[in-house]
Amino acid sequence: MDAGRRVRAAALELFAERGFHGTGIRDLAQRAGLSTATLYHYMGTKEELLAEIMRTSMDLLLQAATRVGVDGGAVERVTRLVHVHVLAHAARPLHTRVVDDELRALSVPLRAEIIALRDRYERLWQAAIAAGVADGVFHLRAPDVARRALLEMCSGVARWYHPEGSLAVEEMAARYAELALNLLGVSGPAPDLDMAIARDAHRLVAELWPEPAG
């Protein structure tokens, strides 16, 4: 791994473990195996490094969601979005922790940039849910509350899922899709997801998130 990637990997690990403010420059240099002077050559400021991690994570998630969550019926769109979100968060839990917990550490302009990316991503979920309500497929009193609840639920896998556990990640994503559709008012088990769709979601996540978690 080249020095630049080592710095980014070290920052991701330390920000997830200790938080932005709990991570010092010497900590970053030591974890990356570089001198402090050399570290600055690859990172700019510590805040810029944090923003880069967040920006990259949100860009990838937005790219994935755009590819799976725009076409098709509302049930299919939500199912695809849940699969990608769950699979991505299970694959990259450290990114989830940093993006969710360290946004407040950014200065106002950088924070606004990351929030804008997050809002673009959430609008894809909002549009899919609204389409289902309009078509009479989803039965909700508060679609915005449902959207927030779904995103919080699906992001939670980053906190507890372990690849060596008893539940395969693909099975977990399918169960989350079932829970999501039930929450949206689709009674009974989730409709069978076309296996080609499932394979596409898994392939997309492997393409965009190829590095092992941690």
Results as ranks from 00 to 15, higher is better:
131 A>C: 09
179 L>S: 15
113 E>N: 09
142 A>K: 09
123 R>F: 07
183 L>H: 07
15 F>C: 06
119 D>R: 12
27 D>M: 06
77 R>Q: 15
72 G>S: 13
159 R>V: 13
54 M>F: 10
101 D>V: 02
128 A>L: 07
62 L>C: 04
42 Y>F: 07
70 V>N: 03
7 V>A: 02
36 T>P: 10
26 R>D: 10
94 L>M: 10
80 R>F: 02
14 L>E: 04
203 R>Y: 00
133 V>S: 00
122 E>P: 02
129 I>R: 08
156 G>M: 13
139 H>K: 04
44 G>V: 02
104 R>G: 14
206 A>E: 10
52 E>C: 09
28 L>Y: 03
187 S>Y: 10
34 L>K: 12
138 F>T: 06
204 L>S: 01
172 M>W: 07
49 L>E: 07
181 L>A: 08
78 V>R: 01
69 G>H: 01
94 L>C: 13
201 A>Y: 07
52 E>Y: 01
25 I>E: 15
185 G>T: 03
54 M>P: 14
175 R>F: 10
47 E>K: 01
148 R>P: 02
102 E>F: 05
64 A>P: 00
29 A>S: 00
210 P>K: 08
131 A>E: 15
98 V>Y: 01
136 G>C: 12
16 A>D: 01
121 Y>V: 05
141 R>S: 15
28 L>F: 03
141 R>Y: 11
68 V>Q: 10
177 A>C: 03
135 D>E: 13
138 F>H: 02
69 G>M: 01
136 G>R: 07
155 S>H: 15
108 V>Q: 11
47 E>Y: 00
89 H>G: 05
171 E>L: 13
96 T>S: 07
193 L>S: 02
196 A>F: 07
177 A>F: 01
121 Y>M: 14
78 V>H: 05
130 A>F: 03
179 L>E: 12
131 A>R: 12
207 E>D: 11
155 S>F: 11
48 E>C: 04
19 G>D: 03
77 R>L: 05
194 D>E: 08
71 D>Q: 12
195 M>Y: 14
57 S>W: 05
29 A>C: 05
147 R>S: 04
179 L>Q: 14
3 A>L: 12
40 Y>M: 13
208 L>T: 05
58 M>G: 11
75 V>D: 03
